[in-house]
Amino acid sequence: MHVNSVRTQKTAGRMVANEPLWFRILLISLCYLIAIVLIIVPLIYVFVQAFSEGISGWWNNLFNDAETRHSVFLTLIVVPLAVLVNTVCGVAAAWTLTKFKFPGRTLLMTALDLPFAVSPVVAGLMFVLLYNLRTGYFAPLLNEIGFKIIFAWPGLVMATMFVTIPFVARELIPLMQALGDDEELAAVSLGASPWQIFWRVTLPNIKWGLLFGVIQCNARAIGEFGAVYVVSGRIERETYTMALRVEKLFQDYNNPGSYAVASVLTLMALSTLVLKIILERMVAASMEQSSSE
């Protein structure tokens, strides 16, 4: 989807805009108005509120609050873990689903999309049903080995993983289908080992698309709220991620604190957008290169 949008932008220039000028100006202004009201003003508002007590106030709200500090720390553990597992498994899934035909392939492809149809709160509920220590299906086992998943960080990781399952695989599958497997087949015929094929042939071809998927996965993981909210049990200095911390501070009527955390999350979202634009160009370039060869 994204890859296409970039590729076609270049050809769009030849399209004739034959609507009258006043009509074009009307539509463009309408777009600007909507963008300003829905997106741009909210964006500005975050920073105006976050810096309402000056930069030192912002800094204090972020780093002189032990709970907020812990939420930053926890986010920095939970998000990379979830993204790492989903990246490795997503690459494996994309490889298996695009390079081979086998019964059940379509089923697995559909399953990859399923998390989009599941409310994050329902996702959280599923993990509570499985792993809570009183009535969970795995409660006897967990009590036996003394491992806590619900109301603890492993639950946060699992809930985040569930919600971000589709991102890497969904980005790679269309890309790898479009690239075909001729180069890999050539490598096999020349006697390359499986690892050589992956690292030397496949990975260089898909690297930008992969990075694109990882970045989207990462942004979604940082922002995940519903699923994490349900499994966290919201224990101070234990299970508050940054997104949950924003809500807690808001409930405590600590607006400057809440907006300070929100401003950091917004900065992360903005850098995601910038990286996406750069990567879209890279993907488009690498697709063009491979199709011209």
Binding site: C89, A92, W95, F102, M126, L185
Partner: peptide, 24 residues
């Protein structure tokens, strides 16, 4: 397909989706 990695790839994919999606 003569490409390698079908067995391990399928094993990883299925265990991943089983633990994270099907069992829940």
């Amino acid at each position: 397909s003569p490409l390698p990695g079908f067995g391990p790839g399928l094993a990883v994919t299925i265990s991943w989706l089983t633990v994270m999606l099907f069992v829940p």
